[in-house]
Amino acid sequence: MVVLALTIGVVWSMPDAEFKRRLLPVLQPVAVATGLEQDWRMYAPEPLGRLEFVEVRVIMANGVQRVWTPPRGDRVLGAFTWYHWQKLKENLVREPTIRVDMAHWVVRQVTELTERAARVQMVLRTELLPAPGTDGPRTVTEEILYDEILAGGQ
């Protein structure tokens, strides 16, 4: 029984392939009767097709560029704080109205009182992932979400 349950679990977790299609008719009656026919795609029906990263670039009056990225946190508490920054990143991509405030906040974070920021840019960097099971190259693109020349410094 244990071997049968493990076999069903493994077969149902496999990607669609000829081997799986041949075993399904044999295993399906037992799987349905025992509740082992879980379709794990319901938890991630469409795998991620791209990764998104937001960074804010602050160009100082002297030409030095500082780049701010959302914090990842440490190994212990990072998982708890990561979600906050992940949701902020998603909203920055979707909601143009919040970008100006975020850009100005970052300028304040990365400049000292004696420094002057001349420009701020918010950039969305996307990395297209190859289809599962392929080793194609990753395509990286950048899109400027917000760009402001700061008159008088921030």
Rank of each mutant, 00 (worst) to 15 (best):
M1I: 08
V2Y: 11
V3C: 10
L4G: 06
A5G: 11
L6E: 08
G9T: 06
G9M: 03
V10R: 05
V11L: 06
V11Q: 05
W12H: 05
S13Y: 03
D16T: 14
D16L: 12
A17M: 11
A17R: 04
F19M: 06
R21P: 12
R21Q: 15
R21C: 11
L23A: 13
L23K: 06
L24Y: 10
L24N: 04
P25N: 12
P25E: 10
Q28D: 10
V30M: 09
V30W: 13
V30S: 13
A33D: 11
T34F: 12
G35I: 09
E37K: 04
E37N: 13
E37R: 13
Q38H: 05
W40R: 15
R41P: 03
Y43L: 15
A44I: 10
P45M: 08
E46S: 00
G49Q: 05
G49A: 05
R50E: 15
R50A: 11
E52W: 04
E52M: 09
E52T: 07
F53I: 08
E55S: 13
I59T: 15
A61H: 07
A61L: 07
G63M: 05
V64G: 04
V64N: 08
R66T: 07
P71A: 14
D74Y: 05
R75F: 11
R75P: 05
V76Y: 09
V76W: 13
L77Q: 03
G78L: 11
A79E: 15
F80C: 02
H84F: 04
K87A: 13
L88G: 08
N91P: 07
V93W: 03
V93H: 06
R94K: 14
R94M: 14
T97F: 15
I98S: 07
I98Y: 06
I98R: 12
I98E: 05
M102P: 02
A103S: 09
A103K: 02
H104E: 01
H104D: 01
W105G: 01
W105P: 00
V106N: 01
R108W: 00
R108K: 07
R108G: 07
T114R: 03
R116N: 00
A117R: 00
V120D: 01
Q121S: 13
Q121A: 09
M122Y: 08
V123D: 12
L124A: 03
R125G: 06
L129M: 02
L129A: 07
P130S: 02
P130Y: 14
P132F: 01
P132R: 11
P132L: 07
G133T: 05
D135P: 09
G136T: 08
G136L: 08
V140E: 14
T141P: 15
E143W: 02
E143Y: 13
I144V: 14
Y146A: 12
D147S: 15
L150W: 00
A151R: 13
G152C: 09
G152W: 02
